[in-house]
Design a protein around this nucleic acid. Structure first.
Lengths: 155, 155
DNA sequence: TATTGTTATACTCTATAACTATA
DNA sequence: TATAGTTATAGAGTATAACAATA
């Protein structure tokens, strides 16, 4: 990219190596770049990627249960417990017993939680824009469409 | 996907939620699916994704140093140390001092390491085929091209 | 019996700093 | 002084099993 007619750097050579061309590897590395940017932007809000994600789902009008959150984020239910514990301590979310199934808790964001989410979201979108900076609109659309299929395909 | 004219499931509704449409989230979830498949296939070879990746780079003719491996895989150099320790104990790789810079070790795969890699690679590619099963050739190409740009963009 | 949320535990991964030997 | 590799350690993430309440 940077030095077109110079000798390729070691990193550029490795990018052409047997593993550097695997979609699985590229997916992992692109995700690492993405996580790095998002984490950096979320630090100012005292949120991690997981807690931000749970908070965002708590703000959704579909009112997901802990089980559904765990499934959607591909986390173990026990991990969701401690993520919610933290958000609840900070006054961002509340566990509301589901009247239709008293085993279930439905997660809802408080006013403070909604405000915190709205502010954090600005920076999350900024991080995403940084990540996608080199892509035109068509590539962004294609990427979203293709990733959606992979992300929600059967395991 | 499965129930076209039925009411959407909670998971399908969440997929349309504020976070479910973020490229960053889709990237993370697609990667999680990918890692799950690859891990499952590598288990039979007694390799993890990281150790497989290091082994694959050790098989590459560019002869990367530990530093270069760390950078390429976005791992801390200290993590690479223990990954190599394990592979070396198993007789798959060797640390060869770089004559041009005696601080550096160059990693090379042994015959046994090359054989182990070749066998594991078959299953890794199988996992990747599972992951990409729903995509046609054009989408696979587009995905590879776009991910490569993200994966090797500046942090 | 099966499921939701919870607790507990052990293991892996990640981040950081300090040390050594070379440059 | 700076860098490659190493060691050590603490914190975050992950996987598992067992339990209480409810279905």
């Amino acid at each position: 990219m940077s030095n077109d007619n110079a000798a390729p750097t070691q990193q550029e050579q490795l990018a052409g190596s047997i593993i550097g061309t695997d979609i699985s590897f590229l997916l992992a590395r692109a995700n690492a770049v993405s996580l790095g940017k998002a984490s950096a932007h979320l630090r100012a809000h005292d949120l991690r990627i997981r807690s931000y994600s749970v908070l965002a789902l708590a703000c959704d009008e579909t009112r997901p249960s802990q089980k559904e959150i765990a499934e959607f984020l591909r986390l173990d239910p026990s991990q969701v417990v401690s993520l919610i514990d933290d958000l609840q301590r900070r006054g961002f979310v509340e566990r509301v017993p589901d009247p239709r199934d008293r085993r279930s808790n439905v997660l809802v964001a408080t006013k403070a939680g909604q405000a915190a989410h709205a502010k954090a979201r600005v920076d999350v979108l900024r991080a995403e824009d940084e990540l996608l900076a080199g892509l035109d609109a068509a590539d962004r659309d294609a990427l979203g469409r293709i990733l959606r299929r992979l992300a929600f395909s059967a395991d």
